[in-house]
């Protein structure tokens, strides 16, 4: 995996180009969002120790967990889901805790911003259990409202961590395979496969172009940056058309005749995993029944 770790470092390096470059080394495992997080997630999925689990099982399990988390609408259930999904991803999957939190940070930001509006309100009169005078009006809230906000946050967070468990342990190609088995239209499956492969090629091309523009002072001030961005974008379009042609040629040379079929690895179902999963669902239901 020597090569892959080098690649990972490469992500970090290119990510930080746009940040101020003073803290080059401190950024490495910091919690928080970085550009290009998408490709980091892809890398984590390949490195996950539970990648060998049957992908259909993982997809079904995380979708069912997500549904239960939303339908049961119970803070304890949400908490159980959050904890168990973190356990699966970090302990079973072997993902560093820092990396896991860093991935969660993106949705978390949105959740907090979205739920604050539910918990805290604004009024001209001093109402509510707590209020804060701002000079032109009052920010007010109450215990009940705060509770509602926290419970909602936990519910959404639980649902998201179930999805993230899936994405951090199942490479996209396998998820596409599951969708194919679920009879999603062939055209969409083929497009997904091609787009997924293409993302990385275009990212490479884009990085090369950006670096070469950067080395020629293409980003020296705002106006030049805008111009360079436009040039890079139009060049990307031309290049992708060319690449698409080259691709088609290469596919035809290997006997492509209009049907894009890939060989998929078949990972066996493990009965024990299914039993655990069913047990977990029952536990969630029981938890909901007891505390409702």
């Amino acid at each position: 995996m020597e090569n892959s770790s080098a690649k990972r470092l490469d992500f970090v390096r290119t990510n930080e180009k746009s940040d101020n470059s003073h803290h080059h080394y401190k950024h490495h495992h910091q919690i928080g969002h970085k550009h290009g997080e998408g490709s980091a997630i892809d890398y984590y999925a390949y490195a996950s120790k539970i990648r060998g689990w049957n992908p259909s099982f993982k997809v079904a399990f995380s979708v069912l967990t997500l549904l239960l988390c939303i339908v049961l609408n119970n803070p304890l259930v949400s908490l159980a889901v959050i904890v168990s999904m973190a356990y699966l991803t970090v302990v079973k999957g072997g993902l560093p805790l820092g990396a896991y939190l860093s991935v969660l940070m993106i949705p978390l930001t949105f959740i907090i911003l979205g739920t604050v509006a539910i918990g805290i309100d604004f009024s001209r009169q001093p109402i509510g259990q707590f209020n804060l005078y701002l000079g032109f009006g009052y920010l007010y809230t109450s215990i009940a409202k705060l509770k509602e906000m926290v419970f909602l946050m936990m519910k959404v967070f639980g649902a998201i961590s179930a999805m993230i468990m899936m994405t951090l342990s199942t490479p996209s190609s396998e998820i596409i395979g599951v969708l194919r088995k679920a009879h999603v239209p062939k055209l969409i499956i083929e497009l997904m496969n091609l787009i997924y492969r293409y993302i990385f090629i275009l990212l490479d091309v884009f990085n090369n172009m950006r670096n070469s523009a950067d080395s020629r002072q293409g980003y020296c001030d705002f106006k030049t940056s805008c111009q360079t961005f436009g040039n890079v974008a139009s060049n990307m379009l031309v290049l992708s058309l060319k690449k698409a042609n080259a691709y088609y040629t290469a596919m035809e040379a290997r006997g492509y005749e209009g049907d894009l079929v890939f060989l998929e690895d078949e990972k066996p179902f493990q009965i024990s995993q299914v039993i655990y999963a069913v047990g977990f669902m029952l536990f969630l239901l029981l938890l909901w029944y007891v505390t409702k």
Partner: peptide, 16 residues
């Protein structure tokens, strides 16, 4: 290279 795993890639020709 068209597929997203090495196995699928090498299998592309024989599958066709």
């Amino acid at each position: 290279i068209i597929a997203s795993t090495v196995m699928a890639e090498v299998g592309f020709g024989p599958m066709n």
